[in-house]
């Protein structure tokens, strides 16, 4: 059978698309470049929204990317069940697009944080985390100035009650409510997280772990089984 095809989106100001594409290839899938200005998902089986500073973070992080032509196709596809993950700026875009609840705001410290971060995997019932063990601790790099997850009390309660918190920080780096590092939507096909799995796939480049591979392996496993 042909390899699963994972789209990697590039907006103006995206930084991590090449790393994401490389990670996709490392697990044996085909990385398909998607351009923000095209209304064309090229028939991909899943989509990765990488980090960076799309549209210069103007207005709010992700606020303008949300209206890119590609998003006109991506939002309904995600609502219909297409596996979509956003890391860092990608997570911010998913929140701005209302595919995930809540928002990412300035770190409580006001400092940009760049470090290796320990996380706990809270949910394996998603399209992107099935290869992990529930409760497993992993280490992924973080690098962001606006990663403090906030949501209304009702939304937070619903996230917790529904088991929609996917990753929690062990040692909160940014003041996120409930130590939330990543969440999923109701269906589990859309996941957003601030840490960077695409930067933790090869030890050769000094990554703190290869734990990031689990994200890519998870979606691939689902696609192959589908």
């Amino acid at each position: 059978m042909s390899a699963a095809r994972v789209g990697v989106v590039t907006f103006p100001g995206t930084l991590d698309d090449q790393d994401a594409a490389r990670a996709v290839r490392l697990v044996g899938a085909e990385a398909v470049p998607l351009w923000h200005a095209d209304r064309d998902l090229k028939g991909v089986d899943a989509v990765f929204l990488p980090g960076g500073f799309s549209y210069g973070d103007y207005l709010r992080c992700g606020a303008i990317s949300r209206f890119a032509p590609l998003m006109d196709d991506l939002v309904p596809a995600a609502r219909a069940g297409l596996p979509v993950i956003g890391t860092c700026n990608g997570f911010q875009i998913l929140c701005e697009a209302h595919l995930l609840p809540g928002a990412l705001t300035r770190n409580a410290s006001l400092h940009y944080v760049c470090r290796d971060q320990r996380l706990k995997v809270e949910q394996t019932e998603t399209a992107w985390t099935g290869a992990f063990e529930r409760g497993q601790e992993i280490v992924l790099p973080i690098k962001h100035g606006e990663g403090r997850y906030v949501a209304s009390e009702d939304t937070l309660a619903a996230l917790e009650a529904g088991g929609h918190v996917v990753f929690r920080y062990v040692g909160n780096p940014n003041g996120s409510l409930n130590d939330i590092a990543g969440i999923r939507n109701e269906a589990g096909n859309v996941v957003g997280l601030m840490p960077h799995p695409e930067h933790a796939v090869e030890e050769l480049v000094g990554a703190p772990s290869t734990d990031g591979l689990g994200i890519f392996a998870s979606v691939l496993k689902n696609l192959v089984n589908a």
């Binding site: 705001t105 300035r106 770190n107 409580a108 410290s109 006001l110 403090r148 906030v150 209304s152 003041g175």
Partner: peptide, 12 residues
């Protein structure tokens, strides 16, 4: 920002 959302810039 809504009143209940922390504003670290304002605090600084």
């Amino acid at each position: 920002l809504k009143p209940e959302i922390l504003d670290p810039q304002g605090q600084a």
